[in-house]
Amino acid sequence: MPLSINLTINGGARNVALDDPRVTLLDLLRERLALPGTKKGCDRGQCGACTVLVNGRRVNSCLTLAATLDGAEITTIEGLSNGELHPVQSAFIENDAFQCGYCTPGQIMSAVGLIMEGSAGDDPERIREGMSGNLCRCAAYHGITLAVQEATRRMAENRREDAA
């Protein structure tokens, strides 16, 4: 059953022909659109490595059937930096928020989504709770929490400067 969907991926319009309705957004990105930055961990919605933004909201791309996304706007780790690193990316580097790096794209996309949700602020307990859908088997959680705190503050400052 040929399906044709229109997506905006990292700002660029893409028309994608799907030959199978089983294709997840994760497999579409990695296997068919040459965007392997989004990682496959558990493939069952439990680890968060595959987190991307769909219409500005963080979701597990492994549980999202691509065919249901016609018209959607997708942001992956590849689309985050704008010439210079996104504040969350910089904060992850500065706070040693990873070791092996495999979960990092998902952690960063989840953090970007969490900060946009605006409910955690820079409270470490709320950040830990808000990031609980992202596992890090190297257990870099302390650095991740610090990085999200710092990025939250920096992005709020940037917004204030922009407004001034």
């Binding site: 919605g45 968060g48 987190t51 909201r57 963080r58 979701v59 597990n60 549980l63 999202t64 989840s110 989504g113 969490l114 949700e117 808000g130 990031m131 609980s132 859908g133 992202n134």
Partner: peptide, 9 residues
């Protein structure tokens, strides 16, 4: 329940 990602979907 669940995680931020799952609750969004």
């Amino acid at each position: 329940g669940a995680s931020g990602q799952l609750r969004n979907a």
